[in-house]
């Protein structure tokens, strides 16, 4: 059972902003509700007004064309990403990350925008968006702005979004070179679990290797120091060094899912594995071509 609130449907971007400003702190944007309703059910969050964003023009759907940025409507359910052929072939890492979220039922409702706006340190699409260097296109009282994903998260449950501002689209820069990505997620069960540690690793044909971590800091983090080791060398030693640097950059906490120390150890193990698998995947593409 949920406590009473008013549900309103925003039809346009302006509508959404106005409704949100009117509602003030009593209002919450609603996308798939898979985070929101859970918190409301637990009485942790008691909004008086829910502003449904799902019918705002352009907020659902995927625009993709070779040679252009990939643009994903914030309210697109994760299964839409998982099933999108273009994303699967060109941004496979994103499909993997989206697929790792919750259950099939949850992914039919859970949106990518909700995943990042909820700003859980363990949000599964966040490390991937970090390594793709996504940009968040928002709409708010000051009209539209583009926020780099690296600047989006400010703490657990906290983002740079201002009162009345919502995410409209998520843009992923067009692919300049071939790449191969790997998303590794450690949970307790093999399915439907939150990450204890997660690692997204994207190996690019340019030689760059990008790495981001989930669930090991107050926000998802990109570990550039670890990446830099791999610029010049990709041998086992460099991989081990990168993994150990990733561990150094992680600042996990102990919670009910795992202890701090275990998270640190796993950060190192999984970062190493993610790099190895990403490099091997990239090499395999090279061979095919």
């Amino acid at each position: 059972m949920l406590l009473p609130f008013d549900y309103v449907r925003a039809r346009t971007k302006e509508d959404a902003v106005n409704l949100a400003i009117e509602a003030g702190p009593n209002g919450s944007f609603l996308a798939g509700g898979t985070d929101l309703f859970v918190r409301m059910y637990d009485r942790q969050h008691k909004p008086k007004i829910l502003i449904d964003v799902k019918e705002i023009e352009g907020i659902e759907g995927i625009e993709c064309q070779n040679g252009e940025d990939l643009s994903i409507g914030a309210a697109s359910p994760l299964n839409m990403l998982v099933r999108n052929k273009f994303i699967r072939s060109e941004y496979g890492l994103l499909a993997q990350a989206a697929h790792s979220v919750g259950s099939l039922q949850v992914r039919n409702r859970a949106s990518i925008g909700g995943n990042i706006c909820n700003a859980s340190p363990a949000a599964d699409t966040a490390p991937t968006l970090l390594v793709y260097e996504a940009e968040i296109e928002t709409w708010g009282p000051k009209n539209s702005r583009l926020i780099s994903i690296g600047e989006f998260f400010t703490g657990p449950g906290k983002t740079v979004l201002e009162q009345g501002e919502f995410v409209h689209k998520i843009r992923i820069p067009k692919k300049d070179t071939e790449s191969y990505g790997v998303y590794l997620k450690l949970g307790r069960t093999n399915s439907v679990d939150l990450s204890i540690v997660s690692v997204a690793c994207l190996a690019l044909a340019s030689g760059e290797v990008r790495i981001a971590l989930g669930a090991v800091a107050s926000t998802p983090i990109r570990v550039r120091k670890a990446e830099s080791v791999l610029l010049n060398s990709k041998d086992e030693e460099a991989i081990a060094r990168a993994a150990s640097l990733a561990r150094e950059m992680a600042v996990p906490i102990t919670d009910i899912r795992a202890g701090e120390e275990y998270r640190l150890e796993m950060t190192e193990v999984m970062t190493g594995n993610a790099i190895r698998q990403a490099l091997a995947g990239l090499a395999a593409i090279g061979e095919v071509k």
Partner: peptide, 25 residues
């Protein structure tokens, strides 16, 4: 809370947790 799936129904052919969806939705 979306964890058990006992409430699963199809909406427009897709399985969803009906405990995490409003009737008005």
């Amino acid at each position: 809370k979306g964890e058990c799936g006992a409430c699963t129904v199809l909406v427009d052919g897709e399985p969803v947790n009906s405990c995490l969806m409003l009737a008005v939705e």
